[in-house]
Each structure stands twice: as structure tokens, then as C-alpha cells.
Design a protein around this nucleic acid. Structure first.
Lengths: 247, 247
DNA sequence: CTCAAAACTCGTACGCTGTGCGAGTTGCCT
DNA sequence: AGGCAACTCGCACAGCGTACGAGTTTTGAG
């Protein structure tokens, strides 16, 4: 363990960076950037500390001066990509537009970096970028009329849905042979689905009715549909509460 | 690779089990059961093929006769725990009750086996238990009045939300020292949250108003709230459509 | 009953992983 | 000038997934 290891259970985010001494040839930022490069190219399994060292033109274990463990590096990486999402400032638009932007921004980040889905489950996101996003979300929802625990509930509803659906979408995309389009993949699978779905009554019936659909924009449309329904549900709750309140 | 390895890219589910020959001392079912035991005790990282062999009182690589790779074993394991969820048959209750049962059933399965969150993202779920669940879900939603792609959208909305929120809940639970209750954990974290939240305006304001809340049933309440909003949103869409249709 | 083949079990080994350790180098501060 | 802090990195270790092939048991065919 390098000497900057965490003595008191503090997280990566609270520990100050080093300052004096020989000038470093590496940096946290560079390490994180390179790790993301590697992850984008080869996926979560494709990142090993040795490969990272190689790509950095450094020794296999050199990164360990800047990062206590691989898990910690992954925490930094997760927060870094969270920084790619932009949430409108409070008051810039109505809350529905802002929430929609948040949802779509988060989703497209995940589709850009599908390996993040493997990182969401491990530790709660507390990095500065994730916090900044939470902060804006809280602001937007508060301005919309939510208060108290409802804010937390609504924001978690939003985030959870996006994370869940993008996780499943990424899983599906990963399972098709790379390079083929969605339509081609579905065409390939069609006989198999025919066979399987025939054994399940409701699913089979649905499939017989809908096997002709164009699968190209299905994921996008499904996501947009879900976000609308979800915001409808929240809006309805606000409306009902406003009706009941001033009575 | 054992000789029953998949020659044509078929999945685990289509390959028939072995029949003739020396009577086996192991079985797929037993292997899967033991793997789940180990996973429940030690988490995703705690499962190694060697440990599995040990616990089975067998050689380190013996399980490889029944399972081509560890990933395949995990696919079986995932489907096995999916079998723990019960979805009401179509017509047994109104669709809202059925959907609520599905959501809560899936959530409590995930909280019982938190390691599954690491499995959702890797491959689409196509095992028999997952299919059975999808089938019932499709049935319930069709009976409710959804049709065509809406069925897929609505069912994915439901599942995605549960998976996302349970993933984040499991992450949070994992990060607190085991054995301490939720309230104790929050009490421990309180000074840290005070410090962090002060740097984020909206989040900080929200925290100052709400730092006194009782965190004990927060997760449960938040989940129930979200499911209600989500079903409201779907219901509203059905209503609007029924209004517009017969006009 | 005989016997080859099928059905399994498992010890060994290979290449990979994360990372602790300690010796080596560099450059600032007194 | 000298010492120490800041870094770099080769080596080694324990553990991983799993390919391989030799060993054991049971079966069905002749």
C-alpha cells in the first residue's frame, strides 16, 4: 500500500493531492483519462493496472502512487464521466424540460460508456460531479414544488429509472455481435424468438402481433415514452397536492 | 473446455442435459444452489470456482463438467433467483395491484441477494424464470389496455425502475459498516454530510431543512412513492387514450 | 460375460490479476 | 552540501479462470 493510503477511512474525495518534491511524470487526471480510454475500447474487463501502466508508458504499478486501489480509481473514473452530463441551472427552463434533459443526458452518457453500468452498484456516488448533478436536480425539483422527502423520492425516481433502463439497454447492445445494426441483430434472432415465445402464452401472442415492427428506434422511443409517463406521474401528484392544499 | 461446451453459440438454456453414463455426484441444480449460498455469504467477489468446488466437497474444477464457464454459471444463478419472484396470474387482480406486486417482489429479491445487481448489466435475461416473469407482465399489461409497443415500453419502465433503484439502494447498504442499523449509519455520517452539503447551495438548503428526519423507513417509503407515481403516469396515459379513442 | 466407449472427477499447469514491498532516482528546502 | 520528501518501478505472492489429459466408474452393445 502506498504511503498516501487512507488512514481514517476518508474517501478519495477528501484527501488532498501531493505538492512538494520531484516533479511527477504522471497525474491523477492523466491516469483517469487514460483509464477511461481503455474502458471505452475494451470494456470493464479490459482495464488492468498493468495495461494502464503500459498505455501510460510507465511501470506496471506506478499508478499506485496516485490511487490507493483499483476500486478507488474506478470511483474517480465514475465521477469523471458523471461530469459529462449537463443539467440546466435552476430557473433556466421549466422543471419538466430540465428533468427531461437530465434523463436524456444521463442516458447518453451511459450509452457512450456502457461499462459504467458495472460501477453504479458498488458504492454510492459522492464525487464532486455527481454531487453537482444532485444539487441541480434538488434545485430543479424544489422549484417545481416538491418539498421535504418528496424531493429525495422524486430525484431518486428519475435517476433510478434512467440507470436501470440504460443498464438493460447496454446489456442488450453488448449481447449482439458488434458491428451489426439493431435491425440486423433482431432479424438474426427472429427464429429463436419465434421458438421461445411460442412457449409463453402472453408473450407469444404479443410477439405474433408485433413481430413486424421496425426495431430501429425502439429503444429511443421506449425511453422517451417512459420519461414522459414518469413525469406525468410526478406532475399529477403535484397537481393533486396543490388542489388539496389551498382548499 | 469441457466437451459439452457450446459448439454453435447456443445459450445455456437450449442445451439439453446429459443422460447416460456414470452416475454423477454433482448436478447443475446443486452447483447453482451452492453458488447462491456462497454469493449470499460473501458477495460477488467471494465466489470463485475453487471455493465453490471446496464447498461442494469436490475438486476445484469439477463444476466445469456442468457449466462451460463461470459466466454461464452466473447466468444460471441469475435466473434461479429470478424464480423467487412471484407475479400474479392475469385476471387474479386488477393490473395496478399486479404491477405493484411485481415491483415489490423484484425489489425484495434484490435486497435479499444484493450481488445480483452486478449481474443485470452483463447479458439480457433469457432464462426460463425471467421469461415466465416477462410473460405474466405482458399478460397483465395487455389486459390493462396496453397494446403494441406500449406493452414493451410499460413493462420496461416498470422493471427498469425497480432494478435501478434497488441497485442504488444495495450500493448504499453495502457502503455502511455491516451490523449497524440505517439510523446509526446516518448518525455516523451526519457531520460529513453537513460539511459536504454546505458546498452545494440547493442540496445544502434541502439538507438543513431535512436533517432531522427519521431515516429508518426512508428507502421503503421512497420506493412505494415512486411505484405509485409511475403507475399514475401509466394510468393517466391509458385514460387519455381511452378518452381520445371513442370520440 | 466382455469390452469399448461414454460419463464423469480432478490434479496440474498456464497466463493473468491486484497489489505489498523496498530499493532506486530526482529535485526542493534549509 | 546534505537530507528528506516525492515519486518510479521491478519483483514477488497469492489468488483467479480454465485448458488439458490421465484416471475412474458405469453403461449398452455384441
Amino acid at each position: 500500500m502506498p504511503s498516501n493510503a487512507d488512514p481514517l477511512g476518508q474517501s478519495v474525495w477528501t484527501r488532498p493531492p501531493r505538492s512538494r518534491g520531484a516533479q511527477p511524470t504522471l497525474s491523477r487526471a492523466q491516469i483517469v483519462r487514460t483509464a477511461i480510454e481503455l474502458l471505452d475500447e475494451k470494456g470493464l474487463d479490459g482495464l488492468s493496472m498493468r495495461r494502464l501502466g503500459e498505455r501510460l508508458a510507465a511501470g506496471a504499478t506506478s499508478a499506485y502512487w496516485y490511487v490507493a486501489t483499483k476500486d478507488e480509481l474506478l470511483e474517480l473514473v465514475l465521477d469523471e464521466v458523471m461530469g459529462e452530463i449537463e443539467v440546466p441551472e435552476v430557473g433556466a427552463t421549466d422543471w419538466r424540460t430540465a428533468a427531461t434533459a437530465l434523463a436524456h443526458g444521463l442516458r447518453s452518457m451511459i450509452l457512450r460508456h456502457p461499462w459504467v453500468t458495472g460501477l453504479f452498484g458498488v458504492r454510492p456516488m459522492m464525487g464532486p460531479n455527481a454531487m453537482r448533478m444532485s444539487d441541480r436536480t434538488v434545485g430543479v425539483l424544489t422549484a417545481a414544488g416538491f418539498s421535504g422527502m418528496d424531493v429525495a423520492y422524486a430525484s431518486s425516481l428519475l435517476m433510478s429509472h434512467v440507470i436501470g433502463s440504460a443498464t438493460m439497454e447496454a446489456a442488450w447492445k453488448r449481447s449482439i455481435t458488434p458491428g451489426t445494426s439493431v435491425s440486423e441483430a433482431v432479424d438474426e434472432l427472429r427464429p429463436y424468438i419465434d421458438e421461445v415465445s411460442s412457449r409463453y402464452p402472453h408473450y407469444g401472442a404479443w410477439w405474433r402481433e408485433n413481430r413486424g415492427m421496425d426495431p430501429e428506434n425502439l429503444q429511443d422511443e421506449g425511453f422517451a415514452f417512459a420519461v414522459e409517463r414518469l413525469l406525468d406521474g410526478l406532475q399529477l401528484w403535484l397537481d393533486r397536492r396543490n388542489e388539496a392544499g389551498p382548499a
